[in-house]
Nucleic acid binder design. Structure first.
Length: 312
DNA sequence: GACGTGACGGTTGAC
DNA sequence: TCGTCAACCGTCACG
């Protein structure tokens, strides 16, 4: 069981097969691209395969979202209670009606569209199994409440399942650990070093520790594939070297004297309030994550603050 | 060398 | 409870 998580790709980056990259890294990929850094350089810096970088950027350009798609699950059922109810109504109104006629009527009446109309065989099955005896009350009787529908649509946003030690425990999906949420805004806890490597300029440090909780469970250090013999301690993991990660803990996010979060801009060599930054695709992405999380965090419960104000 | 693409092995969650 | 299925994932190799 312990030998399940963590593999090292050709670039030395760590990934979990079958699982999406942490949102922080996805965000960083987009962010670097926005800054004009070539995908191949992003790939090397973050130690993410160029195919993945290409995929994430393509998705971002197409959808505007950095988030991975919905993994798992099944297609939405077409035989919803409402559809079954209509089929029963049609059958009651005309006991000799054919399944294909029901299908046509479902379309004609606007109950279904061409994408979700049940097949003739499905209708036949419904007629056989659910409406076989019209004298029997149906579980979907109009006098009853229909069964609860899924809260989320089929293509809901993928919930990053990695445990977050700072997130409230108890619910598996209750709180998205990808980006910390405060009551009215999102912070991107990071420090903005002055060193001029791409990684350091852009503050690629301790992402997994800070913005994703611990990016992969249980702890990256415990990943069997992050082999300490093959992986030098000082070597970067997804562009995050260990020393920097440790340093990030020592030097938390810059805040102003008022406690506002400040972001260091390497371009203008100054800081600016993180939350008053001009709207950008990145801030939009952050807002996207925030809004998704807000919907799923049960009214804001489990809010965390991962940034520690710097005391002078 | 950079990049798009598809195969591949893997995970996930509804049914 | 468990297996199946179809969605997704990132890596890798190829062109």
């Amino acid at each position: 069981l312990e030998q399940t998580y963590g593999e090292v790709n050709q670039l030395g980056g760590v990934f979990v097969n079958g699982r999406p990259l942490p949102n922080a890294i996805r965000l960083r990929i987009v962010e670097l691209a926005q800054l004009g850094i070539r995908p191949c350089d992003i790939s090397r810096q973050l130690r993410v395969s160029h195919g993945c970088v290409s995929k994430i950027l393509a998705r971002y350009n197409e959808t505007g979202s950095i988030l991975p798609g919905a993994i798992g699950g099944s297609k939405p059922r077409v035989t919803t209670p409402n559809v079954v109810k209509h089929i029963r109504d049609y059958k009651q109104g005309d006991p000799g009606i054919f399944a294909w006629e029901i299908r046509d009527r479902l379309l004609a009446d606007g109950v279904c569209d061409k994408y979700n109309v049940p097949s003739v065989s499905s209708i036949s099955r419904i007629l056989r199994n659910k409406i076989g005896n019209l004298s029997q009350p149906s579980p979907y009787d109009s006098t009853k409440q229909p069964p609860p529908q899924p809260t989320l649509p089929y293509n809901h946003i993928y919930q990053y399942p990695y445990p977050n030690p700072m997130a409230s425990s108890g619910t598996k999906m209750g709180h998205h650990p990808g980006v910390p949420v405060t009551a009215g805004h999102v912070s991107i806890p990071r420090s903005w070093p002055s060193a001029h490597s791409v990684s350091n300029i852009l503050g690629i440090r301790a992402f997994m520790e800070q913005t994703e909780g611990s990016a992969y469970p249980p702890k990256m250090e415990d990943w069997p594939s992050v082999n300490r013999t093959a992986f030098h301690p000082a070597q970067a993991v997804n562009g995050i070297d260990k020393a920097a990660m440790e340093a990030d803990i020592k030097y938390p996010q810059v805040t102003s004297s008022t406690g506002d979060f400040l972001r260091f801009c390497c371009r203008c060599n100054s800081t600016f309030p993180l939350f008053s930054a001009p709207a950008s695709p990145i801030s939009r992405v952050v807002k996207e994550i925030e809004s998704k999380r807000s919907l799923e965090s049960n009214g804001g419960r489990g809010l965390i603050s991962v940034s520690t104000p710097v005391t002078p």
